[in-house]
């Protein structure tokens, strides 16, 4: 009986050690680099995409932004095919056009993950619409070698029970990302760590959203 208990304890300890090492390895992996031009967008229409845009400006990263781009707009490259803001649809063009003229294909798309029913409602989207839109964009990115960076800085307020709006947005983007950046309070339950481990995606945990500034500088050189 003693042997059985001892073996069980050893197996559990080894398992825990392997899990911890695995998690640490993923968190401390070398930071992948990303290329410009970059498009920022929202997965779930929460205001966190505003944070991402402002952080990009602080980091000196010139970007294009659209809250609800579709595949056709993304495939038009820098300038999003001349798309213009209107009620429930917002675009901003900050890409350096001398370096990346209009129509240059995007190399990276950064998704600010977080659901807001108010935000989706303002854009005339249901949760299903948003998930389907994201799936199409991600499929296009994969087919065209566009890097995907998934960012979750909304903390607990942008998490929820399994199947909730926030978790559906995470499921739609995070497993397909090339890099995940999340705040520690966004990953309290270890969901991003699990996604990272299951899909071999580098994960970088940060203490605060403000830490995105130096991190993005590093990623985009």
């Amino acid at each position: 009986m003693k042997k059985i208990i001892l073996r069980t304890v050893i197996v559990l300890l080894m398992g825990s050690l392997a899990f911890l090492l695995n998690g640490n390895l993923l968190v401390s992996q070398d930071l992948p680099k990303a290329d410009l031009p970059v498009l920022t967008t929202s997965a779930g229409q929460s205001p966190d995409v505003t944070t991402l845009n402002i952080v990009c400006e602080e980091a000196g990263i010139m970007y294009d932004y659209c809250d609800v781009p579709d595949v056709q707009m993304i495939s038009a490259g820098v300038g999003l095919g001349g798309a213009e803001s209107e009620q429930g649809f917002h675009v901003e063009m900050h890409t350096d056009l001398e370096q990346y003229p209009q129509g240059t294909g995007y190399q990276t798309i950064m998704f600010a993950i977080g659901a807001s029913l108010k935000g989706m409602g303002a854009s005339g989207l249901t949760v299903d619409d948003e998930v389907n839109r994201l799936k199409e964009i991600i499929k296009y990115c994969k087919e065209n070698n566009i890097s995907i960076i998934g960012i979750h800085v909304g903390g607990i307020s942008k998490r929820g029970a399994p199947g909730s709006d926030n978790e559906r947005m995470i499921s739609a983007v995070a497993p397909y990302a090339d890099l995940l950046i999340v705040t520690k309070d966004s990953n309290k339950d270890g969901r991003f760590t699990d996604i990272s481990a299951d899909n071999q995606i580098p994960l970088r945990e940060i203490d605060y959203a403000l830490s995105l500034v130096p991190l993005l500088k590093e990623i985009f050189n």
């Binding site: 944070t51 952080v55 602080e58």
Partner: peptide, 23 residues
Amino acid sequence: MRIATMTSLTLKAMEGFDNHVEP
């Protein structure tokens, strides 16, 4: 919005309290 967001992010990082931004 820009100043409000940077204020919110800085307060959280430097002083440890939440003060999120509402549009």
